[in-house]
C-alpha cells in the first residue's frame, strides 16, 4: 500500500520505520493520487480551496488534541465542547450581545470546559479518559438545555465573510488554522512550557523530580484543547451559518486520528505538529474525495476508521 511510495517520493531508503514515521505525508500523497485519477473534480482550485477550509476546523481541534496527547492524556470532550461553544456563540448572538462579545463568550465557554477537565485530571488525579468521557456527556447535555435541541442560526456578515473571503486566493480559515498550528509548534518546540509539556508526557516522575510543576502543565494542555474547541466553534458557526447542537460528533474521532496519523505517541512525550497537520488534511481529503465520487456517506466512517487502524498498525514499527 502506502509503503511503495516511500523511497521514490521522499528520496529515502525503503524501510518500515521510515514508512511509519512518514505515514501521514505518504498517505496524503496516495489519497491525492487516487482521487486525482478517479475524478477530474478533485484536483481543482475550487475543490482544494474548499477542502482546506473544511480541514481548518479539524486542524484547529487536532492542535488542541495534540497538546493533550503530548502530556500522555486524551481529550474526548472535544466532541461536545465544539457544539457547546458554538451554541454559546449562537445563544449570545441571538440574545443581541453583539458579535465580539458572543465570540469572546464562545472562546471562554470552550476554555472553561478545558479548565474543568484539566483541574479534574491534574489536581484531583482522576483518569483522563473517564474525566473527558464524563464531560463529553455533561457538556452535550448543557448544550441541549441551552438550545432546547434546536439549531440556532447566526446571521453575521462578518462571520460569513470570514468563511468565504480571504487575502486573494488565501482564505481566512487557512490563515487562522495556520496561525494556530504555528502557535502550537512554537509553544512545543521554542518555549519552556513546551519542553515541560514534552517532559511531563515523556516521564512524569522525572519531570516532577527536576521540579517541573506537572499539574500546572497538564492543566495548560487541557485548557488549550478547550480553547482550541472554542476557536474551532467560531469557524464552524461561520461556515455553517448556525449552531447545531446535535452535529459533528465525528470530529472527536477525527481529531484523535489526525494526531495518531501524524506520528505522535498516545503514551505522550512525542509530538509532531507537521504530522498532525498532514493527518488532518489526509482525513479531510478522504471525506472530500468520497463525496465527490458520490460514494454513500455511510462508507465515510468505515474509511476513516480503517485509516486510523492502519496508522495504529504502522505505529507499531515506530521506534
Amino acid at each position: 500500500m502506502a509503503d511503495t511510495q516511500a523511497p521514490g517520493r521522499l528520496g529515502l531508503d525503503f524501510s518500515v520505520e521510515a514508512a511509519a514515521r512518514y505515514a501521514a505525508p505518504i498517505g496524503l500523497g496516495v489519497v491525492f493520487l487516487i482521487f486525482f485519477i478517479a475524478t477530474p473534480d478533485f484536483l481543482t482550485t475550487s475543490n482544494i480551496s474548499d477542502l482546506l477550509v473544511s480541514a481548518s476546523i479539524l486542524l484547529v481541534l487536532a492542535m488542541g488534541q495534540q497538546l493533550v496527547v503530548t502530556v500522555a492524556g486524551i481529550d474526548l470532550s472535544v466532541g461536545s465542547n465544539l457544539p457547546w461553544s458554538a451554541a454559546v456563540l449562537g445563544y449570545a448572538y441571538t440574545s443581541g450581545w453583539g458579535l465580539t462579545v458572543s465570540v469572546g463568550l464562545a472562546l471562554l465557554a470552550g476554555l472553561a470546559v478545558g479548565v474543568v477537565n484539566g483541574l479534574l485530571v491534574a489536581r484531583l488525579n482522576m483518569t483522563d479518559f473517564i474525566v473527558t468521557l464524563g464531560s463529553l456527556s455533561v457538556v452535550s447535555g448543557l448544550t441541549l438545555l441551552l438550545t432546547s435541541g434546536n439549531t440556532v442560526p447566526v446571521n453575521s456578515d462578518f462571520l460569513r465573510a470570514l468563511a468565504i473571503n480571504g487575502i486573494g486566493p488565501v482564505r481566512w480559515f487557512w490563515v487562522l488554522a495556520f496561525v494556530v498550528a504555528v502557535l502550537v509548534g512554537f509553544l512545543l518546540y521554542r518555549t519552556r512550557t513546551g519542553t515541560y509539556l514534552l517532559s511531563t508526557g515523556g516521564n512524569i516522575e522525572a519531570a516532577r523530580g527536576v521540579g517541573i510543576h506537572v499539574n500546572r502543565i497538564r492543566l495548560i494542555a487541557y485548557a488549550s484543547s478547550g480553547l482550541a474547541c472554542g476557536v474551532a466553534a467560531v469557524l464552524f458557526v461561520a461556515r455553517t451559518g448556525g449552531a447545531d447542537p446535535s452535529l459533528q460528533t465525528d470530529l472527536l474521532l477525527s481529531s484523535i486520528a489526525a494526531v495518531v496519523l501524524g506520528g505522535s505517541s498516545l503514551f505522550g512525550g512525542k509530538a509532531s505538529v507537521f504530522g498532525t497537520v498532514t493527518g488532518a488534511l489526509l482525513l479531510q481529503s478522504l471525506i472530500n474525495g468520497f463525496t465527490l465520487l458520490g460514494i454513500s456517506q455511510y462508507y465515510q466512517p468505515i474509511a476513516v476508521g480503517t485509516v486510523v487502524l492502519g496508522a495504529a498498525f504502522i505505529s507499531r514499527f515506530q521506534k
Binding site: R190, T195, Y196, L198, N203, E205, A206, V210, G269
Partner: peptide, 30 residues
C-alpha cells in the same frame, strides 16, 4: 531511575527546568 526524559535530546535533559531563554516577558524563547 535517573530522571531523564528519553525522547528529549541530551542537551534538553541537561537543561531541564534550567532552560536558557532569550527575549522577555511572555515572548521568551529557548
Amino acid at each position: 531511575t535517573l530522571g531523564l526524559i528519553e525522547d528529549l535530546p541530551v542537551w534538553q535533559n541537561l537543561y531541564l527546568n534550567h532552560e536558557l531563554t532569550s527575549g522577555f516577558g511572555p515572548f521568551r524563547v529557548l
